[in-house]
Structure formats: C-alpha cells, structure tokens
C-alpha cells in the first residue's frame, strides 16, 4: 500500500545532471529510452540513484507502517474468517516491505540505515497512515480504497526503469488483488447490511476521503515539474493523472452502493472526461507529513518498540564471523 512519492523540490532541472560524464549520461538515457532496464551494477547518475533510494525507501516504510492501522483491528475483527483474512493481508504488507527494502539495498543503502532514518523521523512514508482506523469500517475502507490507490500507483511505477524495483512491484501487484477483493467484500457487506452498519461505513468513508485525495501527492499545479525524473522513468505519471484514474475507477463503485463522498463539487465533466473536485487542503497534508498528524508519534513509537524488543533475538542468532554484502538484484 503506497501513495505517490512525495518528490522534493529539486530546483533547477539541470542540477540533476550537474557534474555527470556526458558520454555515460547519453548512453544511460538511450538505454532507458529504448525501454531497457537499469541494473544495480550499471553506471547511473548520482541523482538517479539518490531519487530512487528516497522513493523505494519511502515505499518500503509505507508498507511496514501501513500494516499498523489495519493490524490494530486483528484482535477485534468481527469473526474468525475475517480475522484470518486480515492477518494474511497484514502479513502481505510486511512482506512487501521486505521486498522493497531489498530492492533499495541494491542501490547501496543498508537496511539498518533505512530503519534508523524511519524511526528518527528523517524518512517519510505514505501520509495516509498517520490517520487512525477508528472502527472496523475504517479498516474495510483502507483495504478497499487505499489498496486501490496503491495498485494504480504501483502498476504505473512497475513500468519504470530500475530493474530490481520493477521486479519487486510485479510481485507486490499480484498480491494486492487479494487485498482489493477482500476490502471490497468488507465494504459491500457493511453497505448492504443494517442501517447501523451502513452508517458505520459511510462515516468511515467521510473520514478517509481527504487522506485518499491527498494520497497521490500534491496537485501538479503546485508540485515541482519533474521532467528529468520522467525522462529517467523514475516518476512515471503525474500526481493529478493518477488521482483522475482513481476517481474514474472507484467513485462510480462507491455511488453504486448508495454511499456518498463528502465533496459536493465532485462530478465528472462529460465534455473533458475529467473529474472535478474541491482541491483538498494541502496545508493539512504538509502539516501531517512533517510530523503533526493524529498518529505520527504512535506509528514511530510502535516501530521503535518492535525493533527494540526483537534485538536480543536477532543478536542471539547472529554468527560472529558474519559479514554483509549488498544483494545482487
């Protein structure tokens, strides 16, 4: 589960290639333009490596932190079948983090450094997981719609240029289809249930709408244009394009259940084929991603506890003569 990378403002586009060998850069760009993948041992521009590390690492952290709001509901899942299914989904998310951490390590950042940057608050993760899952219906809306958004983003990114990341995403996307079906099943069950169940799922929808609109990142109007990153196939689609795709695929399904979305201006413009909506509050997005959200502190505290309490086990089984080399691919 992951939203779009929060691409930082890199200033002048030329600075991305400053100091690079022009011959090697041209070969590298020609390889990407021809649709070939870049492998870890290949030459690559410093900024390509840096941006990919930041992006894959954010994605890995999002998977592992994303397991927390849903994991909260495992002990209180309504019924044994749902408990088992939710456990399987949460295990998938943690497994996705493992795949992504490995892909990122091929670029030269160790797993220990990534975990430290997460628990120190230096690295970001998908902002949506800084919001609480207040009821069971929230976990249903997350499993359906957050995973739906993640699939759109991950399928797009799986066409990118970095081999290990694309291969990890292919495996991840295959597992996400279960999450989407599972989430949809849970939302449909509530939406077609008693008036109280319908009310629960509607309230969850109201709570999650703004975070879902934030999910794909700031509007293209205020986001730095990233032509070089597009050319390098690091960034594969604009935030607004992915948001449009999400609205187009899922708003009709939400309305079909007789549920509403808390935005009176949301409608499809039949002439342009584009969805019109109230721009979500991007100040809130910035505030929450920078640490001031309802659950930021809790998420990191839980992650620190997991690392701390697991340490003695990891140390006990570590062989004295063990040494680390980066994974191959």
């Amino acid at each position: 589960m992951y939203g779009n990378a929060y691409v930082e403002n890199t200033g002048n586009q030329n600075s991305l290639t400053a100091g690079e060998d022009p011959v090697k850069l041209a070969e590298f760009e020609a390889r990407i333009a021809a649709g070939e993948k870049i492998e870890p041992q290949d030459w690559m521009p410093k900024e390509y490596r840096r941006q990919l590390i930041r992006m894959i690492e954010q994605h890995a952290h999002s998977e592992i932190i994303g397991a927390l709001p849903e994991g909260t509901w495992i002990t209180r899942a309504p019924g044994f079948r749902r408990k088992l299914a939710l456990m399987a989904k949460v295990q998938d998310e943690v497994g996705h983090a493992q795949l992504l951490y490995s892909a990122c390590e091929t670029l030269g950042k160790s797993r220990e450094d990534m975990i430290n940057d997460l628990i120190n608050g230096k690295s970001k993760y998908s902002n949506i997981f800084n919001y609480p899952a207040e009821t069971w219906a929230d976990s249903a809306v997350i499993a359906w719609l957050v995973d739906a958004g993640a699939i759109i983003n991950q399928l797009t990114n799986s066409k990118g240029s970095y081999g290990p990341y694309c291969r990890a995403l292919d495996r991840i996307c295959a597992e996400e289809s279960f999450h989407l079906k599972y989430g949809h099943d849970n939302v449909v069950f509530l939406a077609t249930g008693t008036p109280k169940q319908r009310q629960m799922v509607q309230e969850a929808m109201n709570r999650w709408w703004t975070p879902l609109m934030h999910f794909f990142g700031p509007s293209d109007k205020i986001s730095q244009h990233t032509e070089t990153l597009m050319k390098w196939k690091v960034k594969m689609a604009s935030n607004d394009d992915m948001r449009q795709q999400f609205l187009d695929m899922y708003v009709p399904k939400i309305w079909d259940l007789g549920l509403t979305v808390p935005d009176a201006n949301l409608k499809k413009n039949e002439e342009t084929g584009k969805w019109e909506y109230t721009e979500p509050d991007w100040e809130e997005f910035k505030r929450v991603i920078n640490g001031d959200g309802p659950c930021n502190k809790e998420r990191l505290a839980v992650r620190r506890m997991a690392e701390e309490k697991g340490r003695w086990v990891r140390n006990t089984i570590l062989k004295k003569d063990a040494h680390y080399v980066a994974p191959l691919a």
Partner: peptide, 8 residues
C-alpha cells in the same frame, strides 16, 4: 530501536 551494523 536504533540499529547497529549487522543488526539485520
């Protein structure tokens, strides 16, 4: 929870 080298 801060990691040392080889913790993982």
């Amino acid at each position: 929870g801060i990691q040392q080298p080889m913790d993982q």
